[in-house]
Simulated assay, not measured.
Amino acid sequence: MEDILRPIYQERASQSNTLGVLMVEKRQKSGQTTDSFDVILLVIVKEAEQPLFIKHYSYDDKKASMHVIAEPLLQEWLLLGTNRKIFEWLHDAKIIFDRNEYVANLKTELREFPFYGRKLKMGLEFAKLIRRYVDGKALFESHLFLDAYNHVVHSLHHLARLAVIENGLHPELTVWHQVKQIEPEIFKLYEELVNSEEMLEKRLELLFLASEFLIHSRTNIGAGHLLEILNNKEYWSFSEIMSEKELTPYSVDMSVLIEYLIDKHLIEVVNVETKGQGVFHRCYRTHKKLS
């Protein structure tokens, strides 16, 4: 298989822009890892006009998919978790070409999972968790139980991913398999939600009570990255928070996260005078007890 595909990846490996070439082969009887292809070729390049370029090939009775990925996009995927399959591919891949040990160092970094990367990832998962939890609770209180259920399932998924990252691991596609070993309490909540024969309203009511405790117990670690950044200034306007480079990944979840942390007395509001009488700029700072 590798011999047949060699002319394709050798051409890429010969280019100075190429950092590494990896090959992921389909596991026996399962094409889930490789999106039903027999082989995935990953070509990592320094830069490209098109951050992701995908080409499909046929050979014998098999098929292959080549993904040419610009390094900035790869780093974004790894940081934000927006392409979860990439972790599995990098873990399982055979290194075909490696310029200056780029790929070997990348795999080592993923395995060791530096603490700063964990803090940011926990912050992002926590923000998504709060968004789903708050929206789900509002829908529940409006008696829109099926819509609330959808949000609660997603909130539990983010809680599970947060627990996995907290334990120094990357969340995989089989996150519930991971959580069953690491945090059985969260796994049990998920099982009760999807398998219980109780009325949906009752299931959701019990789950909101139980998950509130689990979320509360992780608030300090989940919000740690955000609070650490906010501690660098006396107070921040919301636009300053959103334009801060280290905080831009929080995106649309930032507003609801800040309001949640105000409720938990971890952030407080600072009213700054405007030219309009009785109208203030609403700014934010970490609670004085944290400073």
Rank of each mutant, 00 (worst) to 15 (best):
G117D: 14
P249L: 02
K94A: 01
P114H: 12
K94R: 14
K180W: 08
F53G: 05
S237Q: 10
P72I: 09
L73W: 07
K264S: 03
D92C: 01
L193S: 01
R203P: 02
K245Y: 11
F213V: 15
L144T: 04
Q181T: 09
Q178R: 00
R132D: 15
F140H: 04
L124E: 05
H67D: 04
H157Q: 10
N220I: 12
H281T: 06
I229E: 05
E201W: 00
L226I: 12
E141S: 09
Q10T: 08
P114F: 09
W236F: 08
A127H: 04
G31V: 04
K107L: 04
E246A: 11
K62F: 13
G276E: 14
V134N: 07
N195S: 13
L226N: 11
L156I: 06
R111W: 07
E11P: 07
T34M: 02
K26P: 04
N195P: 00
K188E: 15
S36F: 09
L73N: 09
S196F: 09
A48R: 13
F97E: 07
S58F: 10
P249T: 00
E11I: 14
A13I: 02
I40R: 04
E47G: 13
L159M: 11
G276F: 13
H67E: 06
R118K: 15
A93H: 02
H151L: 10
E201Y: 02
M66V: 14
D3W: 08
L42A: 03
V270M: 07
N195E: 11
Y59P: 02
L146M: 12
L227G: 06
K46F: 06
A148Y: 02
M122N: 05
G222P: 12
F145R: 01
S255G: 10
R111V: 04
N231F: 04
V252M: 07
N195A: 11
S237E: 08
E166I: 06
F113E: 12
V24C: 04
L257H: 09
S16P: 12
L129Q: 11
E101L: 14
L200T: 00
E212H: 13
D3C: 06
V152N: 01
Y250Q: 01
Y284G: 08
T274L: 00
P51G: 03
Q32P: 00
L19A: 00
S217H: 13
L169M: 15
K55H: 09
F140Y: 13
P114R: 11
V279Y: 14
A160N: 00
F140V: 05
L19N: 05
P114V: 08
I4G: 13
V39F: 09
F213S: 13
E240Q: 15
E88A: 11
R111I: 04
E240A: 15
L214Y: 12
K121L: 12
F280C: 03
I86T: 11
A163E: 09
F37H: 12
G123P: 01
L90S: 00
M199D: 14
S30L: 13
E183S: 14
S291M: 06
Y235P: 10
I186E: 01
L169G: 09
Y9V: 07
Q28A: 10
M122K: 09
L144N: 10
D35S: 10
W236Q: 06
G168A: 00
K107Y: 02
F53V: 13
F126I: 03
K180E: 15
L162V: 02
L129R: 08
F53N: 15
H67P: 05
